[in-house]
Amino acid sequence: MAISVQPETTPEREQLSAPRLRMKQAGSERGHFDGGWWPRSTDLVAELPALSSALKQWVGPVTSVSYHLDTWGPTARKVRVGDRTVRLEGFRFTDPHTITVIGSGSRSASLLVVPPEAPRDAARAALRSVVDEEPAASAAEILSRNGISPAL
């Protein structure tokens, strides 16, 4: 007789898998960003399932993600996320600290990306700034104001 053991779900384990994401409230002035995201790594494929799940209420099922090629490690052009195929579209002309997530019905979310290596307090402050600061602030301005070097 085989016994199936499921890994214990602890708040710490859930916290490690939950995306570090803040989104603006519905109806707030959009500006450059709809929210901010602090990924744990530069492996977009590994980060995408949790982000996709968290963004479902804003964009629906994710169909594509555009990103800056030099910000993320090498990645495939298409990946499976759950039961869907997601196109990953890398460009050099986009802001290195921004990704755009497109979902069903062409709904999209533009996110400021806080570098994974950013100190915790500075990263959290930057995420708060994205949703609280003036809409015209650029990624470099938000990161710099919060003590994070926006240089690649």
Rank of each mutant, 00 (worst) to 15 (best):
G105M: 01
A50K: 06
E14A: 14
S28D: 14
I142P: 04
P74F: 02
P49L: 02
E134N: 13
L111C: 07
A46N: 07
Q15W: 11
R30V: 12
R30N: 02
R13V: 14
T85H: 06
I142T: 11
R13Q: 13
S52F: 04
A122T: 04
H97N: 15
V65Y: 04
V5Q: 12
G35E: 03
M23W: 02
S108F: 05
S66F: 01
R92P: 02
R107K: 15
E47M: 10
A122N: 15
G27T: 02
R22G: 03
A26V: 10
N146Q: 08
A140H: 11
S149I: 00
L69R: 15
E133H: 10
P135C: 00
T71Q: 07
A125H: 12
T85P: 00
L44T: 04
E134I: 06
A26C: 01
R30Y: 01
A125C: 08
R92I: 10
A26Q: 12
Q15L: 14
I102P: 00
V62I: 13
H32D: 03
G103A: 06
A125E: 13
M1W: 03
P96E: 10
K78W: 08
P119E: 13
R145S: 14
R128G: 07
D83T: 12
G27L: 05
E47Y: 12
W58C: 00
A123V: 02
S4Q: 10
V5Y: 05
R87H: 13
R92F: 12
S66Y: 01
L21C: 07
S138D: 08
V131Q: 03
R84I: 02
M1S: 14
A109K: 01
T71P: 00
E133G: 11
W38L: 12
S149K: 01
A18G: 06
E134W: 05
P135A: 15
R87W: 07
V65M: 09
W72I: 08
